[in-house]
Amino acid sequence: MKKLLHPALLVLLGGALLRITVGSEVYLRYVKEGLRPMVIVTGAVLVLLGAVGLVREGRAWLRQPVLNHRRAADGSYRVEPHALHAHSPDDDGHGHGPGAGPRVAFLLGAPALALLFFAPPALGSYTASRDGAAVVVEQADYRTLRGRELTPLSMREFIGRSMHDATGLAGRQVVLTGFVSRGGGGADWHLNRLTVNCCAADARPLRVAVHASGDAPAADSWVQVTGRLRAGAVDARSPVPHLEVLSVTAVPAPKNPYADRAPELGS
């Protein structure tokens, strides 16, 4: 009967992967958008393998002979010799036969159950404030910013311009979107985005130091900030530009928290 647990675990893991990808965007909290097909295929394969294992082990369990216990003359009970064939000849009696596996494998059931019943949130202020250096933004050929109206920028572009095109941002009101973390280095608080190459495990922060009047918004809350770049050199090894904030507006968390896009004004 214990051997049924191993294929059941595969079905549980596969079902959890399918639950967060098929008809759902929960997977975006953990992996980049382009990996969705791979996650779906992986989940389907795990479910298929688990189902095959359940059928195989279930049939084997139903074919097991009934154990016959007889009472000996001394009052003890013994099993008839023919009933010993209920165990696989390759089983060593300790659950290490071909259908068994390491007990630690059952720990995989915990994250699978978490994904099935309550999906953990995306990474937030805890990760952003404890990661080391911020993402290094390479120099790019930035287009010339026209006019003096509000200019929505992605965090990456704002940080890159603060390093390589600070004159283009001088006096300009920019609009950024991100989540809040505690301040440091003279800032009242930080505005952050997390960027990933593959999945949440390799997340790195895009960070802007915010200077604002009034209390800081709650940690992990998503806000849209309007402000101006504060003059000063930005360390290229860990670029964190400073922003003088003019207004802060609470906004809903985006469906894809790791996609760094410029905010849409008026949305």
Rank of each mutant, 00 (worst) to 15 (best):
V104K: 05
A128T: 05
A114N: 03
R130N: 14
A140Y: 05
N68W: 05
H69C: 04
L62Q: 13
D74K: 00
P65T: 09
A51E: 08
G147D: 12
D131K: 00
H85G: 13
G101D: 11
S154V: 01
S154W: 02
V55P: 06
N68A: 15
G50S: 12
D90Q: 10
V52E: 07
R78N: 08
G124Y: 04
H94W: 06
F106C: 10
A112W: 01
S76H: 05
H94E: 11
S129D: 11
L67W: 00
A105F: 07
V135C: 12
F117Q: 01
R56T: 09
A73S: 12
R130A: 13
A73P: 00
A105C: 06
L48S: 13
V136W: 06
H85F: 07
R63G: 13
L62C: 10
H82N: 12
R71N: 10
H87F: 14
H94N: 13
A105N: 04
L116Y: 02
L62A: 15
T127Q: 04
R59S: 08
R148C: 13
G147N: 08
R59M: 14
L84M: 07
H82C: 05
G75I: 04
A140V: 09
H94M: 09
Q139S: 10
Y77W: 11
A133Y: 04
R59E: 06
H85Q: 09
R143D: 12
A134T: 11
H85L: 14
V79E: 02
G93M: 03
L150I: 10
F117I: 00
S76R: 04
A133F: 07
S76W: 02
G58P: 06
P111D: 03
L108K: 01
